[in-house]
């Protein structure tokens, strides 16, 4: 019997896993943004002396994982599982990182929702008694995403104002059954929600309904209200998606105005950095959570946070075939 499940889509952890370590790495552009003082490491060059962008992304993810291990004095041998994913075809960055680390690996694809997808599954592995230490990590890189999903980097074009900027960044979290740090109390798994948006340059609008669906179900499943949280943080809806999510939540009767924010909005100064609607990518919610939120929780500035990473499950083929963009959002409730 599923004794830990509550309501429709939520799981409560009687033995909440602890986040004992976090590490974030971002690229130079993110390192000039409003959160620059929070990131653990800012790359001077987003190629990191590698020959290809893909190798650079993989190196960034590997460095984040290694540094998060170092922070809690663990070695790869201490870790039972690595749950990781990225935006690239066949999870190139995560797979090559896992090859070099030698930790048992589950590759996950949740588009930009991978941070909370990996956190959710990692928490279940620990609470279920299957593991003592699990790493949840993810990355994205502007240049690898751009060449896979859009145009060559040097191609001249004008992006529409609804477009977002893929974050070059990576975040790694070490979860443990024992230790000190914020705990994951609940997770709410998201459904795939599709409201028929077909514009691949407007992913905020495509993903916002999924985020709203997951947040609303989280409240009804747990009996919590927006007041319970100091911060409800969506992954990468951007300015437009944030506005839409707020409107839709208000329509459903949840007033989140004072506690709601979005990682994609926080990470860039959209006017001065020319990022249009804000940041996107797995690395967006990963680096903001590992950099900013985790540290603020450790300082007890934030006590209860609901992280809702959002993903647009589109591919280049689905876009070319005129399919609409399915969105997904997984919620993770973190408390200290």
């Amino acid at each position: 019997m599923a004794v830990k499940k509550m309501g429709q889509q939520t799981i409560r952890f009687p033995l909440p896993p602890k986040i004992i370590s976090a590490y974030s790495i971002v690229g130079p552009k993110e390192g000039e943004g409003p959160l620059k003082d929070w990131f653990d490491e800012i790359l001077e060059d987003d190629m990191i002396k590698e020959k290809t962008w893909e190798k650079a992304e993989s190196k960034m993810l590997r460095s984040a994982i290694n540094a998060s291990l170092k922070n809690c004095q663990k070695t790869p041998e201490d870790i039972d599982f690595l749950l990781s994913g990225d935006l690239l075809n066949q999870l190139m960055s995560a797979s090559y990182t896992a090859r070099d680390l030698g930790i048992p690996f589950y590759g996950l694809y949740g588009a930009c929702s991978t941070m909370t997808e990996s956190l959710s599954l990692a928490s279940m592995l620990i609470d279920g008694g299957f593991a003592d230490h699990v790493i949840a990590a993810t990355s994205s890189h502007f240049s690898t995403a751009e060449r896979q999903y859009r145009f060559p980097l040097e191609h001249g074009n004008q992006k529409p104002p609804t477009a977002q900027w893929t974050v070059t960044g990576s975040g790694a979290l070490v979860l443990a059954s024992q230790g000190a740090g914020p705990v994951i109390t609940h997770i709410t798994a998201g459904k795939v929600v599709d409201f028929g948006v077909t514009d691949a340059n407007n992913m905020g609008a495509a993903m916002a309904p999924a985020a709203v669906d997951t947040i609303a179900i989280h409240f009804s499943d747990t009996g919590r209200s927006p007041d319970f949280y100091d911060l409800i943080l969506t992954g990468d809806l951007g300015q437009l998606g944030k506005q839409i999510a707020k409107d839709l939540l208000t329509e459903k009767g949840f007033n989140v105005e004072s506690v709601y924010n979005d990682c994609g909005v926080m990470i860039f100064d959209s006017i001065n950095q020319d990022t249009h609607c804000g940041g996107s990518g797995c690395g967006c919610s990963a680096s903001v959570f590992c950099g900013n939120i985790y540290k603020r929780m450790m300082k007890k500035e934030l006590k209860n946070v609901l992280l809702v990473s959002t993903g647009a499950l589109l591919s280049t083929i689905s876009t070319q075939q005129g399919e609409s963009i399915p969105g997904i959002a997984h919620a993770v409730a973190v408390s200290i």
């Binding site: 004008q158 104002p161 409201f195 028929g196 948006v197 407007n202 309904p209 437009l240 839409i244 609607c277």
Partner: peptide, 18 residues
């Protein structure tokens, strides 16, 4: 279908224009 149309209409209204 109707719900999607309504949503897309709303999105077009709030989206910033070039």
């Amino acid at each position: 279908n109707r719900m999607n149309q309504k949503y897309n209409y709303y999105v077009n209204n709030v989206a910033p224009k070039p």
